[in-house]
Design a protein around this nucleic acid. Structure first.
Lengths: 349, 349
DNA sequence: TTGTAAGCGTTATCAC
DNA sequence: GTGATAACGCTTACAA
């Protein structure tokens, strides 16, 4: 559609395009009176600079791609995005959000789209620790910096922001054992390898307290397809029940897993925490409002987003130079005990 | 950073840039063998088309701006975004999300940024019914189509997607009266005018059942600043309590208002629904999980987003022509009764 | 203080 | 079938 350009202003004011450009950019080369005229005309005619043209010329866009793996209605993700947004407002960058929906091919396609759009840097939560890892290294070397958050592969050479998953999982497990719930079902994503820190923390806590690790208490479910996830979780619980080894506690490795598990248990008429105590790697805001309120390993979601964007901007400001050392920042989690693991209120009630 | 261009390919293959361009775009003018060579080289060298340059040339970007007024962690909004995202995947558009944070000046700045970025169309939930309304008309006439969702001014001439707020508010109010709660506090945003459909529906229900409307039971709070919102809500309830006219029901006009109200009541040790029944204009997914579960006027959030994007794309495909008639689509709400207005379970318990 | 001209990476028109 | 060339709107040496 129509759109007044610098050229139109030049014509109207009988000046050259370069004069207009400079005037609009408040260059010292241009006289005050001319600047005034140009700016007045621009304002009066609703001139809007074409950022495509500008970016094409100057070689950067001042925009950052954010690639996340799940739906916005994941509250954990939403809070990370709020943190990213807050930081981007401060640094003056636009953000372009894309979603991989837990799918590796989508992830690559999004990455390409972001690069095509000329983003100055990319912030991403990978689908899995190993997804597209060589490609990510390629991008950081040839296109733009990337900062990873939430999940990540130690092998990728770039800045990463996350939480101390190992310690968080350890504490959660330990708490379940402390309240004497030792048949703990651990539900995690099927794309997480055996070396996932949450799994390792879980196993370590068992080992420390001499609880034998039982492979039947590990459930790997799809994160990509929530129906499949629900089915898998439901089926696992039912099978264990039939085998007379029903767990008396569940530890969910992601917020989506845990909130869905709560729904599934309600459907199965299994009482929380009486029959099964539940704790999750999830986030405060919503956990507090759930019914029953959910005990969680709280991750500082907004901080992750905020920090990640700032670190990315630092990298961008290096203009292609590599930093002396890429950082891996692990924020601390805190354990938040609520009713889903509180056996005392139950007995009182 | 480096980035191989069409020109580089031309040089490497001893062909002209136009040949490369046509080959990459699979033009009938180019021989199969040449196409093959070009595509192979491009793939091998990780060529990525520069969309800035392309868009600048062809005059559109295939991207859509989405301007929302609140935080992503608003679940209602998150669900609308999920709907928008789903539709955009199907139509093949990118989306650029910006946030006005319930502030009129931000709103205008975001609009300008979006236009500068060359979006083909804009999807927005205005800060208030009247915010930037002349400017919106200007944009639709001179830049690109806009589709409004959630809130909107009947005076703006464009497509709008929302819900039948009048009917929804009417039903919610009627339900409160039916359970014999007639001192209803209505909490709404301070930027909503007296002609807001939710307010009108509320008043109509009172009138129908001969309940006198009491201005003291109207609370207009800030949507921009949640601390101010909390303070206002808290103060209103306390003042009415002191005046011995404490409401026995609350109707919240937005999801943020209602969820925060629930928290405030818990803090004040006011029992829901025993002391005060609560109903909100909110959304299912989270309402179900709240404690107590929240009765709501359910808005089909994902449908709103999905429809809005599709309608916008229809407008975009008109390439600047105006449609014969702009539509205003009001989806139906459904009333979902849960524990926050359920007095029976309370008496049983 | 202002103007000229080249160029960013594409596409499209027209010629060969 | 392939190749020059201009143009999209802007910035930036360099010239005047």
């Amino acid at each position: 559609m129509s759109n007044i350009t610098i050229k139109d202003i030049a014509k109207a004011l009988n000046l050259s395009v370069s004069t207009i450009s400079k005037a609009l950019n408040n260059s010292y080369e241009i006289g005050d009176e001319t600047k005034q005229r140009v700016n007045d005309y621009a304002k009066a005619n609703n001139y809007k600079p074409n950022r495509l043209a500008k970016s094409l010329k100057i070689g950067h866009t001042n925009s950052i791609g954010v690639l996340v793996c799940s739906y916005f209605s994941s509250t954990f993700l939403a809070q990370i995005l709020d943190g990213i947004q807050k930081a981007s407002l401060e640094t003056g960058h636009d953000i372009i959000i894309m979603q991989s929906f837990e799918n590796v091919d989508n992830e690559k396609a999004c990455l390409d789209a972001l690069i095509s759009k000329g983003v100055d840097g990319i912030l991403m939560a990978p689908v899995s620790e190993t997804s597209n890892s060589e490609y990510l290294n390629y991008i950081t070397q040839n296109h733009c910096p990337i900062v990873l958050f939430d999940r990540f592969n130690p092998a990728i050479e770039t800045t990463k922001i996350g939480v101390n998953e190992y310690k968080g999982a350890f504490e959660a497990t330990q708490h379940l054992i402390n309240i004497n719930r030792k048949r703990i079902l651990f539900i995690t994503g099927d794309k997480f390898g055996e070396n996932n820190q949450r799994i390792l923390g879980f196993k370590k806590a068992l080992k420390n307290l001499d609880i034998p690790f039982n492979q039947r208490y590990m459930v790997y479910c799809s994160l990509e397809d929530t129906e499949a996830m629900d089915a898998k979780i439901c089926q696992s619980i039912q099978q264990l029940t039939e085998a007379n080894i029903r767990p008396n506690a569940i530890f969910g490795a992601t917020d989506v897993i845990t909130t869905r598990t709560l729904g599934i248990l309600a459907n199965l008429k299994i009482k929380v925490p009486e029959d099964i105590a539940v704790i999750g790697f999830a986030n405060t805001d919503i956990a507090f409002s759930l019914n029953p309120s959910l005990s969680t390993i709280r991750q500082p979601a907004r901080d992750i987003g905020y920090l990640a964007l700032n670190k990315l901007v630092e990298l961008i400001d290096l203009h292609g130079k590599k930093p002396a050392q890429y950082e891996t920042i692990l924020l601390e989690t805190t354990i938040q005990l609520r009713n889903s693991t509180n056996l005392e209120t139950v007995q009182q009630a």
